[in-house]
């Protein structure tokens, strides 16, 4: 499977309605989704991702139940978008090919298959299905700070051989500093050559999302993710409206109308933000200790339930090396911390 032709210098993919689902505790309404898609589409965004934060099939006790059936949200997004493609996330082990087929039926045209950065060999089944369905494909190598550039490139190779058109350096913990991000971008680009594009998905936990996006473009990364108002896990993603402004200043054609993007952020998304994603102590600890960004709200809830500080829970999760999807371990850590406190 070859990589698709680019129509602009870089392909900006907006994930307000997917990564943002974490920050919304998966409570998006159909109206919010319709309004956001309409604004993004009019501002020139090429791809809009919509699904539960943990991907299709993510609605659960462990990650939080969706307020609105995600298939309904995907269908609504498909209806609103005139030009933009609708993408969904699929995390093997959480979602299945049955979920992917339903998302495709609802109107999804791209799937982003996400695995931990060393476990790409759980993805070929799903890339195979995506190809059979005629969908565009992206591969997320999550928690990309947890392996070295050379090994990350080998994992990208597994995905590309399985039919992935764009493996990503996915900085789920918002932990990659600029030189670390650059080394990973370069390794992936060297590995996949012109067989696939390379992508970058950033989080703002230590404020690197936009800076890393600029480096990414400079070294040849051509898919870059953002969220309006940074709405996403942890302290959020690289804000799409900031990416639009920065790339405009750099003279890089993203196809985005900067004013329309600013309006979308300010007038459509800001009014429904439960809180503006920010670099507070908990989120910084995530970037500092390398903790999966989606753990944030779960840790805050466990902190309240078990009367232990959220930042201590998050730090312990980092020390124990928990990966994306292990939200249940947050409760376990909180219980253990509470017991340790009781013992003194």
């Amino acid at each position: 499977m070859s990589r698709p032709a680019l129509t602009r210098d870089v392909r900006i993919i907006d994930t307000t309605l997917r990564d943002g689902s974490h920050a919304m505790a998966h409570q998006f309404t159909e109206t919010q989704v319709r309004d956001t898609v309409r604004a993004l589409d009019q501002a020139g965004v090429e791809v809009i991702e919509v699904s539960h934060g943990d991907g299709v099939g993510g609605s659960s006790f462990n990650y939080g139940f969706s307020r609105t059936d995600e298939m309904k949200l995907i269908a609504a997004a498909r209806e609103e978008a005139r030009n933009a493609k609708i993408a969904v996330l699929l995390v093997p082990g959480i979602g299945t090919n049955e979920d992917l087929k339903r998302a495709h039926d609802a109107g999804a045209e791209m799937v982003r298959v996400a695995t931990h950065c060393t476990e790409a060999d759980v993805s070929p089944q799903h890339f195979g299905m995506a190809r059979d369905l005629g969908m565009e494909t992206v591969g997320f190598l999550m928690m990309a700070h947890r392996t070295d550039p050379e090994n990350l490139a080998k994992q990208a190779r597994i995905m590309v051989d399985a039919g992935c058109q764009a493996p990503y350096v996915t900085d789920s913990a918002g932990a990659l500093l600029m030189h670390e991000a650059r080394a990973r971008f370069e390794a992936l680009i060297a590995e996949v050559g012109d067989e696939a594009w390379v992508g970058y998905h950033g989080h703002q936990n230590v404020s690197m999302g936009v800076a890393n996006s600029v480096i990414a473009y400079e070294v040849g990364v051509r898919y870059i993710d953002g969220s309006l108002c940074a709405l996403g896990a942890g302290s959020g993603n690289s804000p799409t409206e900031v990416l639009a402004a920065v790339f405009d200043r750099l003279g890089v054609n993203t196809g985005l109308n900067v004013s329309a993007m600013l309006d979308a952020a300010e007038d459509v998304v800001r009014p429904y933000l439960p809180r503006w994603p920010k670099m507070d102590r908990n989120a910084i600890v995530q970037g500092w200790a390398g903790v999966y960004s989606s753990f944030l709200l779960h840790a805050e809830r466990a902190a309240e339930r078990y009367k232990v500080p959220a930042h201590e829970i998050l730090k312990r999760c980092g020390e124990l090396g928990y990966v994306g999807g292990q939200e249940d371990m947050i409760i376990d850590v909180a219980i253990q911390l509470a017991a340790e406190r009781e013992r003194g």
């Binding site: 659960s60 006790f61 082990g93 959480i94 931990h116 060393t118 476990e119 990966v323 371990m329 409760i331």
Partner: peptide
């Protein structure tokens, strides 16, 4: 019923863990 599986590469390897949530 719903089932989720997570693979974790941490070293030394983690002992199997399972969580059961029942409504």
């Amino acid at each position: 019923g719903k089932a989720i599986i997570i693979l974790n590469p941490v070293e030394p390897p983690m002992i199997m863990r399972d969580t059961v949530f029942c409504a």
